[in-house]
């Protein structure tokens, strides 16, 4: 039988952090797991002061989600956020955190930019990253 006086040391706030879809909730938790101060994936990616190390950690986590997500929705969202993280590093740090070619990145950014289910602020991020790549000398952005 349970101890009647038993309690918990910490609240379970994260349980109520459900988003508009289970996959989005997963992404939110993933971001907060890497950076406990993060308020949302969108805020973290559009903020210019998110450290490059944090973006790299996000990218690795989203890459794994893309490859090993439990559902197709998880995998698709993992792929989108993987691309968004790379876009964020290009826009805010002028650095690439992926070894993929400019062409492959441009194609990924174009795909996200044209996806109307993605938040407008994030689509704008990919547009800016796309333009930076387009105007830079080919494959010249430092890794």
């Amino acid at each position: 039988m349970n101890d009647p006086e038993k309690t918990f040391a910490l609240p379970f706030k994260w349980i109520l952090q459900s988003d508009h879809s289970p996959s989005h909730t997963l992404v939110k938790w993933l971001v907060q797991e890497i950076d406990p101060k993060a308020t949302s994936p969108i805020d973290s990616l559009i903020a210019s002061d998110t450290p490059i190390a944090t973006l790299i950690a996000y990218k690795d986590a989203f890459k794994q989600l893309r490859l090993e997500g439990e559902t197709l929705d998880d995998q698709s969202l993992g792929a989108v956020y993987y691309g968004l993280t790379i876009a964020s590093s290009i826009v805010h740090h002028r650095r690439r955190i992926s070894r993929q070619s400019d062409r492959a990145l441009e194609e990924a950014f174009r795909k996200i930019w044209s996806d109307e289910t993605v938040d407008l602020r994030l689509r704008d991020l990919t547009w800016r990253a796309f333009m930076i790549l387009r105007t830079a000398v080919k494959d010249s952005l430092p890794y």
Partner: peptide
Amino acid sequence: PAQVANTLVRMKR
């Protein structure tokens, strides 16, 4: 670390 993070969020779910 991504493996740990992904494990945690999956278990949370």
